[in-house]
Design a protein around this nucleic acid. Sequence first.
DNA 1: AGAGGCTCATTGAAAATTAAACCAAACTGA
DNA 2: TCAGTTTGGTTTAATTTTCAATGAGCCTCT
Lengths: 169, 169
Amino acid sequence: MNRASTSEEEPRWLTEEEQRVWRSYVHAATLLEDHMDRQLQRDAGMPHVYYGLLVRLSESPQRRLRMTELAMHAKITRSRLSHAIARLEKNSWVRREDCPDDKRGQFAVLTEQGTEVLRRAAPGHVTAVRNAVFDRLTPEQQKALGEAMQIIAEGLQPNEAGADLPWLR
Amino acid sequence: MNRASTSEEEPRWLTEEEQRVWRSYVHAATLLEDHMDRQLQRDAGMPHVYYGLLVRLSESPQRRLRMTELAMHAKITRSRLSHAIARLEKNSWVRREDCPDDKRGQFAVLTEQGTEVLRRAAPGHVTAVRNAVFDRLTPEQQKALGEAMQIIAEGLQPNEAGADLPWLR
DNA sequence: AGAGGCTCATTGAAAATTAAACCAAACTGA
DNA sequence: TCAGTTTGGTTTAATTTTCAATGAGCCTCT
């Protein structure tokens, strides 16, 4: 049943057109991620992923989230999150707190200073996103992009199909 | 003139809809990159970027490219490429060669073994891309995705607009 | 010829990420 | 109750990436 996935059979190669699409995608995704990383590194002293963590915390009740929950939202491993939070803790942008209900548990809590950093970095970030993406695409193109990515994401969701579960490995 | 870009002025925040699009994008892009990295790491013993380097070399005349050229195509810094090639050289998948015309220059050359690794890894990779992307999108959606990403990439091209030049920094 | 400024590429150290091992607490079932 | 398993999270080491500095060769201009 799973023979096809590991066999030597000739796969269905990508057509010219599919290749163009895939390469455009990889190309743009690389450039975009680089761009955001650099912008945030310059303006806020952290990479895009870290910024995402702070944003997520800022939107959570009590501006706090359990480690695993945060990792799931951010789609990163718990290990990576541990390291990241350690770094953010050094910056005093995040603080850890024990979970009363579960003695194994930890909360990551956004500090005042973290909130402040976010407040100052947000405008530049939105502007960067707008310049790079929304100012260049028609509303239809934006919609189409969103839909396509949505579908792709669904296919890679760790639930269903029991594929790889980054944060559960 | 450049005041707006660094001032404290209120930016045009993203609308609800724009946010949804942007988050879908980031979400899917993260998942996808993770997925490819893991697939290639498992099946070919290298991350996606390294695989891209080998592919690019395999498509080049004489299966070789100058370091800077390769870095540009791959959109990575020369430094990063140096390290990457060093690693690939240890695997004997790539070999360095001096450039006769320019004594500063180096070619990265895909070896026989590199070619072989590529040959064995390619089917799995195409299949992974197909499963994750093309099997899930209609031809129209594929086209739209390609176009949107194409436009975004153009806006981030290092040439014109003299923005940041990753490999020239 | 040779001073000065690029360009090509590498290096070494620091930061970030991944992979795997690990510990402690919580749960499960006999 | 207690052995075995799962869950939550950290730790260590290895790999990869970034950052800043360096050096050698090319190019231009005088």
